[in-house]
């Protein structure tokens, strides 16, 4: 693990589907709704494009929280993508919980293109959760050769 000189700041990766949530994030910007700069958005075509690998990779590379945003169930641009995402993420989150990783480091939120306010609020509350959880060490420490 690298030595940090600066005080810890959370690093949050947000996967946003192109059609609803990314547009919702844009709307938050257009309405000048503030949320912390710790949130970095990655655009994906649909929430069903988010591979559990991406989420684990983010944690592996030092992310403290990962949030997946998609269209509301029933509103998916591709009709069923978010339904698949919902099952996949439910199972993945349950597994992470089972391994003893803190609840709340991962989240799924449905944000429509009209919900700029909800996007900003979601990010604010998510950052708050991550700050209260502190640095993400558990996933990295899960397999520790020294023990």
């Amino acid at each position: 693990m690298q030595v940090r000189n600066e005080p810890w700041k959370p690093l949050i990766v947000a996967f946003c589907c192109n059609w609803c949530s990314y547009a919702g994030a844009d709307l938050a910007g257009t309405n000048r709704l503030n949320y912390p700069a710790d949130v970095k958005i990655i655009r994906v075509p649909c929430s069903c494009r988010v591979n559990p690998l991406f989420i684990l990779r983010a944690f592996q590379r030092g992310a403290d929280g990962v949030i997946v945003c998609g269209c509301h169930p029933g509103d998916c641009h591709y009709t069923s993508g978010n339904y698949y995402a919902r099952r996949r993420m439910t199972l993945l989150f349950s597994m992470l919980d089972y391994l003893g990783i803190e609840k709340g480091r991962t989240r799924v939120e449905w944000v429509s293109a009209a919900e700029g306010q909800k996007f900003a609020e979601t990010m604010n509350s998510f950052v708050e959760t991550i700050v209260s959880l502190g640095e993400n060490k558990r996933l990295e420490d899960l397999r520790c050769k020294t023990e």
Binding site: P73, G74, S80, Y83, Y84, R86, R87, R88, M89, T90, L91, F93, S94, D97, K103, G104, T106, R107, V108
Partner: peptide, 17 residues
């Protein structure tokens, strides 16, 4: 199988917590 299927009223991921 369940991972390649869905229902409209599946539980939300938050149920895990």
């Amino acid at each position: 199988h369940p991972v390649t299927n869905y229902r409209d009223d599946d539980a939300e991921p938050g149920i895990v917590y």
